[in-house]
Structures are given as C-alpha cells and as structure tokens.
C-alpha cells in the first residue's frame, strides 16, 4: 500500500505522517510512506488545505490532522 502525506512539511504534516505509520503498523499492513511537498502535485489532488492524505492514489481527506483511528478507516476501506 502506498500512503502519501500531502503538505509542505509543517508540524501538522509530520504528525499526520506519524499517525499514518502507526495506523499501518497497528493493522499489520506493509506500506510505503511518501511525503509529497510539491505544490503542483498537492493541488493536483484537489487539496487546498494541508495536510492531506492519499492512499493508493486516492485522496482520503485533507485540512485536518487525522487520528490514528481515522487513518485505520482509510486503510481498511
């Protein structure tokens, strides 16, 4: 599974990356975590409020620091 964290590297983006890692570990899903800082790519996903989270190329949510539980939901479905 590929998880992309969209954001310029602010504190919230880093926390989101940590939460995503934890969520993947808890579910035992092997995943590749990529931090996307390129503006064109971020906006290309339609995101105007960072941080955003993309799982396997699909935007799951943005503008919010998602919790570990919420990310588990993204990874499951």
């Amino acid at each position: 599974m590929k998880i992309e964290i969209l954001g310029p590297g602010c504190a919230r983006c880093q926390q989101l990356a940590k939460n995503a890692e934890e969520a993947a570990k808890a579910l035992g899903i092997p995943c590749e975590l990529v931090k996307v800082t390129d503006m064109a790519k971020i906006v290309g996903y339609g995101v105007m409020a960072t941080p955003g989270i993309v799982v396997d190329g699909k935007l799951k949510g943005s503008g919010k620091l998602f919790t570990v539980d919420e990310i588990k939901g993204f990874l499951a479905g």
Partner: peptide, 14 residues
C-alpha cells in the same frame, strides 16, 4: 474558513 499558514500555497493556487 479554516486556514493554517502551511496551507497558504495550495489555497493561493486553488
């Protein structure tokens, strides 16, 4: 509208 300064760029572009 919710906003944090790290979103300034994507918001500007959008």
């Amino acid at each position: 509208t919710p906003f944090c300064s790290c979103s300034a760029c994507p918001l500007f572009i959008g």
